[in-house]
């Protein structure tokens, strides 16, 4: 495997968790709900996934456990914001703080333990194609899942009646309610979907990227995923671009550090975050266009009258 190949491979690995988490949050926000708890759900997924894999010896069971945990954690958010109508921003922040603390506590005994790794799916022959073979056909299962998730989300949002209804709720929940749409049911399901995605993204970190558990191992990726959704103007393909840009700069700066580029390593480590934000801000600098795509009822509570 050449250097170029391994760089491409690692870029995809760095981009995948962001892509999965952001795509889940995209669906949540398209329904008009702002869940700032992505980081918390993601870190809970990472911890649970690692622990379940370590206990059972199966990375697949770990992945499943992470998805279930992400969804369960988001259910807490859903109940509070949808049924009790609490403030979404405050509840989301609380979810993140709770997730970071709780994962550190339950994962305490697993720090430093060797973990399970999800096996790569090597597709025979195809993965032997030079340069792109390993990148396209020799990746971890979640990479393929993230591609399927992107295509599936685009199809769901823009081609199906249910997706249309979801976008309509995000645009104007009052009107949707007047048409007899069960706004809260849709939002519950969207939030659960977002939670499951965040859980899976967390599992990618602790079962693929670096198969071990470290406290706060998400390192702000949940926040980057949230920022991706906004700066991508709630459009799926832009999230792919943002996630891979982040992955690319992450890997690029690692190699730069290895070569010994005379830039402080702290600055290089911060580079992926800075670059992603700057590029996406530039893309979305047309405020009119951004407003046009923003779900108009994003973050607003909805309580149907009796």
């Amino acid at each position: 495997m050449g250097i170029a190949e391994s760089i491409l491979l690692t870029i995809a690995t760095a981009a995948t968790p962001l892509l999965i988490a952001a795509m889940g949050e995209l669906v949540v926000e398209r329904s008009g709900v702002l869940n700032l708890g992505v980081e918390g759900m993601m870190v809970m997924g990472a911890a649970t996934g690692f622990m379940a894999a370590a206990v059972t010896g199966s990375a697949w069971i770990g992945l499943l456990a992470a998805i279930v945990m992400g969804a369960a954690f988001s259910l807490l958010f859903a109940v509070l914001t949808q049924s009790v109508a609490t403030n979404q921003v405050a509840t989301g922040l609380a979810l993140t703080l709770l997730g970071l603390g709780l994962s550190g506590m339950i994962g305490e005994h697993y720090v430093g333990m060797a973990g399970q790794k999800l096996p790569s799916l090597d597709i025979p022959f195809l993965s032997d194609i030079p340069l792109i073979g390993a990148v396209l056909f020799g990746q971890d299962p979640l990479f393929y899942a993230s591609i399927a998730l992107t295509v599936g989300t685009m199809w769901f949002l823009f081609k199906t009646k249910t997706g249309l209804t979801l976008r309509a709720i995000g645009d104007n929940h009052g009107s949707a309610h007047a048409l007899g749409v069960q706004v809260q049911r849709y939002r519950y399901l969207a939030i659960l979907f977002g939670g499951a995605c965040a859980g899976a993204a967390g599992a990618h970190l602790s079962l693929v990227y670096t198969p071990q558990w470290v406290e706060n191992m998400t390192a702000g990726r949940g926040w980057i995923a949230l920022a991706l959704v906004v700066f991508a103007s709630w459009r799926p393909w832009r999230i792919v671009a943002g996630a891979y840009l982040f992955g690319g700069v992450t890997i690029g700066q690692l190699h730069a550090q290895a070569i010994g580029v005379p830039i402080p390593s702290q600055l290089l480590t911060a580079l992926p975050y800075i670059a992603t934000i700057v590029v996406l801000v530039l893309i979305s600098r047309n405020r009119r266009l951004t407003l046009l795509n923003t779900p108009a009822s994003l973050g607003k509570p909805f309580v149907p009258d009796h």
């Binding site: 976008r167 104007n172 009052g174 007047a178 779900p295």
Partner: peptide, 15 residues
């Protein structure tokens, strides 16, 4: 009006 501004006329009718 119970229309959705960010959707097309046809999408609104479909809703």
């Amino acid at each position: 009006f119970s229309l959705f501004e960010a959707l097309t006329a046809a999408e609104n009718i479909a809703m």
